[in-house]
Design a protein around this nucleic acid. Structure first.
Lengths: 216, 216
DNA sequence: ACATAAAGTGAGCATTTACTCATAATTGGT
DNA sequence: ACCAATTATGAGTAAATGCTCACTTTATGT
């Protein structure tokens, strides 16, 4: 609750191996505590306790509660980016058809969002983040959209009057649908594989069917 | 912060007109304060102050901070439901084509989500809500999906091997895409009308193009 | 005019939280 | 064995928050 984020840098950098282990334990504990209690109720004291270190130790390596959340989020951004590039590399090497490529894409994104759905939700939606983190997220997202566009461009069967618009919609669709599906495990009255198949069907139709332009 | 939600019912029901005005003022102030500060930092004292009533008055009509959020959310659910039925009625009377119908649907949903995007985001994502509210939301959502399915069924050009699955995907797509578009005003590097048109195009393609079944 | 119910007040309490700091323990190099 | 740097400790602090309650003011019916 308090808003005294005076310190911006940690007091110590982990130098010895001992302290690196401590930092990892804190981050692991933070994921567990945030997942169990949410951001607001996930207190730093609880995180320290769960990590098996004292509250003082926690504040040696993280200048604020917010810094912990930012660290977790940065890790997630890196993971996602890595995964996406892995997927593109795979597609280019294997020369899969558009349909399989989309299937891999959707399934992969769904898996990423399913890994720690609650944590991601908490970090992305519940946590009040500084502006620079929001911008980093936006940037990462735009890069991802471009990466997707770069791959889709390779398929000649794609018919689109404006590939940029189309790819924006594709990316947003996959992102928001998989996020939503993973975040609300209760809503899922259609099974996962069916869901992926249907989404792929929709994307295929959108990409390959020539629709007449809209009427006013 | 405190977790002493002992009282479940308000101490008073608004009887005279005077108190009804007060309750409205509190709810209005709550939307403003939540939009400006988020849920956690949107303190009850601030809400009361913004409403021009004392903190004591607030607690006469709302037993807890949570109750205020629930009241706002219930209002939103009602609004959305009303809007959806209005749309269906309009479509049935006017006998619009599928394309126009979808266009109206997407545009309408986008407008609903644009009305108070930040407030909705706060209520739905930041606010820790009791289980019964989550269930009410789920129920409302499923009803909405059924309503949409009921309308789509009327159009003979719709080709679908399983209308239930298709409508689930349609509904989730429109819901999550419009929500996302409205919630992140920065991401919008394609204009609103283009966005609506593209989404409609995608839905049309999905609904009317016959796609071969997926390969393993 | 009067009585009773309804509506409104706001200082303050109990609790919680993020964070500090003086001190102690551990480590590694010599 | 010794010392300085690194790492760890946890009781304590100041600030903030949700909420209560004893009390005052206003409206209504007769």
């Amino acid at each position: 609750m308090t808003a005294r984020k005076q310190r911006l840098n940690p007091r110590k950098q982990p130098i010895q191996n001992r302290s690196k282990v401590t930092v990892d334990a804190i981050l692991l504990a933070a994921t567990q505590v945030f997942e169990a209690h949410g951001y607001a109720a996930g207190t730093t004291n609880r995180i320290a306790s769960q990590a098996g270190v004292s509250i003082g130790t926690l504040y040696q390596y993280f200048p604020s509660k917010e810094a912990i959340a930012v660290a977790l989020l940065e890790r997630h951004i890196t993971d996602t980016d890595h995964r996406l590039h892995e997927w593109v590399g795979h597609m280019v090497v294997e020369r899969h058809g558009l349909c399989e490529a989309l299937h891999d894409y959707v399934a992969g994104m769904l898996e990423i969002h399913t890994r720690q759905p609650r944590l991601q939700h908490i970090l992305l939606e519940e946590t009040p983040l500084p502006e620079r983190v929001h911008q980093a997220l936006l940037e990462a997202e735009q890069n991802a959209a471009k990466t997707v566009a770069g791959l889709i461009r390779l398929y000649p069967e794609v018919r689109s009057s404006c590939l940029e618009h189309t790819c924006f919609v594709i990316f947003q669709t996959v992102e928001s649908l998989t996020h939503r599906y993973a975040a609300h495990p209760d809503d899922q009255f259609i099974p996962r594989t069916t869901f992926v198949d249907e989404v792929v069907k929709m994307l295929m139709a959108y990409l390959t069917c020539d629709m007449p332009s809209m009427a006013g």
